[in-house]
Every structure is written in structure tokens, then in C-alpha cells.
Design a binder for these strands. Structure first.
Lengths: 222, 222
DNA sequence: TATAAATTTAGTCGACCGACTAGATTTGGT
DNA sequence: ACCAAATCTAGTCGGTCGACTAAATTTATA
């Protein structure tokens, strides 16, 4: 009939192997033969199931993008009154927590993050689509929040604060290998991630004179 | 006798072309023929002058690393008394300013930054050397500073603050294309970079209760 | 179990890769 | 101007790449 069970299994094996290899060496450095070997599938299956190497890559990228599409930032912020200082503080904390959850969910293959940032970095057909999905939407919501906090803020400044808030998270995802090597660990501990969230959030709240009390472990610098 | 003038010119042309292409497509995606064509040199010259593609890549990486080796962070901090709060604040500001200068110096080819971050990201023989040059040294100095500010701070927390302080700068260098595209500009304006420095520094100073007065444009969030 | 469709397999194809070389050309000190 | 050393050039080589195919095999149904 339409599709046999073995088909979806083969497709997934090829996608996983591709993501794994791409995370390790970069999309530009891997061959269809290496992919097929790691997936324990025949190289011809790439052509049969995806139509070629490029299409396989698109499928990999799409499988990552789907997860972000299914978890829009707006959903995480429903019910927050961003017109009050307390609500604004809570929104900032929720944004950071939500991104940490998405980036470092242990259920998700570790190659997802590397795929994201490679697509962002190098020209490819899906780049704009992907940026729109993963970045633009988040960017827009957060910039609007900053402009609510300070109505006099211009676009460029809002962008700047967007970047300042999220780049620590992004860097922890993009350069996970280096950081973990430096920390002498194999994965971020929940405590470390919690501290990352707290510190990011606190720095931003302090900058905007927003209340830091909420549900945070007290911060004391001496 | 040893070396003719044309030789250094050819070598430099090949290094520049390689850096330019690598920045655009990634080291793994460029061929010796493409390099030679962009450099307007013969492909055989790569073998003659460098001994092969890999050695050429090493020369490119080394040409970038040299610049960081020649500008150690320690030099920027001489004469600062990091035992006083004012000195600590000044040190943090100097660190950030110095990195911004190195990363966004208009005299330096724009491919330098992309080379740095590709070497950091993907396994290669010079990776550890490079990390030691560009990251470790900076890391050590800054972590020591944080531990001076708060003697009770543990290593992991110091690392965290190191990352929080510098990742915005690093991200602005690593993802320069995306950010500039979003800002609708072709290069960061001095004003934007200054604001980036000020905000990064202020956030950190506020977090550690250090004086923000120094030589900074006053910060007021409403 | 018989069967047609779906899938897997092994192998071929031309294109391009990096490495290398022998010979032509240029350089710079004399 | 001469010439030996340095450099440049065009081209060959074996190897790997992605695309593709025809035949073998497996699957799900009747």
C-alpha cells in the first residue's frame, strides 16, 4: 500500500545519523556514504526516500524546526499582565526559563542545537524560513515587552536588550562542548541551568529597575 | 636569495582568499581550486607555498591567532587596582572595551571573526592551541577578577559570570551577519558598539553592586 | 499463500577533489 | 646581460563525491 513500516524507520535512521554527523563535523563535511554507514542503511535509500542529499538535509532541519514551531513563545506568556512591573519581571523570567527548557531538554537529541546554529550561520535555502521560525517570532515578542517596560525605547535599543538577554543562553547551546569541557562535566546540571536563568534574569531586572523578589533564590554579592 | 617579493604576495593572497571563502561557506565547504581562483593564483602554488590544503588552513588560523597573541588582556589591565570597587568596575569596563576593539576593528578583514568561531566549534588540530590563546587566557584573568570581587565565589560561578559578561560580545561577532541584517546596517556603528559596551558593563556592575558612575553615559530606565 | 507494490541492494556513472610534477617563466644579485 | 634559484603554470593521477538504476528482496494485503 502507501507506505510500509520499514520506510518511516529508515527515514528516521537517516535523519538521526545526518543530524549526529552534522553536529559533529558540520553539514558541509559529511558524505552520503558516511550517513548511510552510521544509519546502517543503504546509500541508495537516501535517493529513494528523500530524493538526494540536499533534500535529506532539509528534512533534518525541518525536524528541528518543527519542535520550535510547536512551542511558540506566546503560549508561555499567556495570562501575564505585562503592564505591571511584577508582570514584566515574571515575563522575562518565563522567557528565559522557556528557552532553557527548549534548548536543554534531555529528551531531545543533542545534535538539535548544533543544527539550529549551523543553519543560522551558513547560507542555505531554508535559512530565512528557519530564522523566521526560531528567531524572528521570539525577537518580536521580546522587543515588544521591552518597549512596554520603557515606552521611550527605540527599535535598536530593544534589539540590543533582546540580544543581551538571550545570548548567554544561545552561547551555552551553541558552544555546549567547549563550556562543558571547561566545567569538567558531560551535561549541564539542573542547578547550573537554574543559576544561569537566575543570573540572566536578575541582571536584566536590575538594569530596568524591575522587582527581583518573585520566585528567585536571593541574590547577594558579598 | 631565500625568498622573492612575489612569494609573500602570493602567500598573502592565498591566505586572504581562504579566509574570505571560509568565512562565507565554512572551511569544510571550500576547494583549493576555488581558493586559487579567488586569489587569482595557480592552484599549484598552494602546494608550493604551504605544502597542502591543511597547511594553508593552519596558516590562515595562525594569522588570526597572532593578532590575539600580540594583544594579551593583561596589558589592558596594567595599573588597575582591582582591590578597590572603583578599580574592579574600571577593570570590567576595560575588558569589555578591549574585546570590542579587537573584535570589531575596521582595519581587520571581516573574515577574522568567522575563522575564530569556526576553529572553536569544529574539531581540528589547532583547536586546543587556539582555545588556549583566545579563550583560556582571557578566561583566567576575568575569573580571577570575579573571585577578587567576591572571594567566596566558586569556580563554576566565576565561569558563569565570565560567560555572561562576554557572550553578548562574542555573539555580536559570531552572528554579525544576522544582527546587521536585522538592524538594517552594513556594519556596527561606533554608537551601537558603545551602547553595547555600556549596557554589558552596567548589567554586570549592578549585579555585583559595583559603582556604575565612572566614565559612563548615565543610565536611566524610565 | 499468491501477488503487486514498496523498499532495499549492489553497482555504475561523470564530476570534482587534493596532491603532485615536470617544465616554463620570473626574479634578483652579480 | 647573465644565471642559478625561486616561483609559477598546465596538466596528470588516484580517490571520493552525489546521483542514479536495474535487479533482488521484503512487505502488506487479498
Amino acid at each position: 500500500m502507501g507506505i510500509y513500516q520499514t520506510s518511516t524507520k529508515t527515514r528516521q535512521a537517516l535523519i538521526d545519523a545526518t543530524g549526529q554527523l552534522a553536529a559533529e563535523k558540520g553539514f558541509n563535511a559529511i558524505s552520503t556514504r558516511a550517513i548511510a554507514q552510521l544509519a546502517d542503511e543503504n546509500i541508495g535509500s537516501i535517493h529513494y526516500h528523500f530524493g538526494g542529499k540536499d533534500k535529506l538535509f532539509e528534512a533534518v532541519i525541518l525536524s528541528v524546526a518543527t519542535r520550535w514551531l510547536e512551542n511558540p513563545l506566546e503560549d508561555a506568556l499567556t495570562g501575564i499582565d505585562i503592564l505591571t512591573a511584577a508582570g514584566q519581571a515574571q515575563a522575562i523570567r518565563l522567557i528565559v526559563s522557556r528557552d532553557i527548557s527548549l534548548l536543554f531538554d534531555k529528551e531531545v537529541p543533542s545534535w538539535h542545537n548544533r543544527v539550529i546554529f549551523q543553519v543560522m550561520q551558513y547560507p542555505n535555502p531554508l535559512q530565512n524560513t528557519f530564522r523566521a521560525i526560531v528567531l524572528e517570532r521570539e525577537n518580536e515578542v521580546i522587543c515588544r515587552l521591552f518597549k512596554t517596560i520603557d515606552p521611550a525605547m527605540d527599535d535598536e535599543t530593544a534589539e540590543l536588550h533582546f540580544l543581551l538577554l538571550l545570548t548567554p543562553l544561545i552561547f551555552h547551546a551553541d558552544y555546549q562542548n567547549i563550556i562543558l569541557q571547561k566545567l569538567g562535566q558531560t551535561e549541564y546540571s539542573p542547578q547550573y541551568l537554574q543559576r544561569l536563568v537566575d543570573t540572566c534574569v536578575t541582571q536584566t531586572l536590575l538594569f530596568f529597575n524591575l522587582p527581583t523578589s518573585a520566585n528567585e533564590t536571593s541574590h547577594d554579592s558579598e
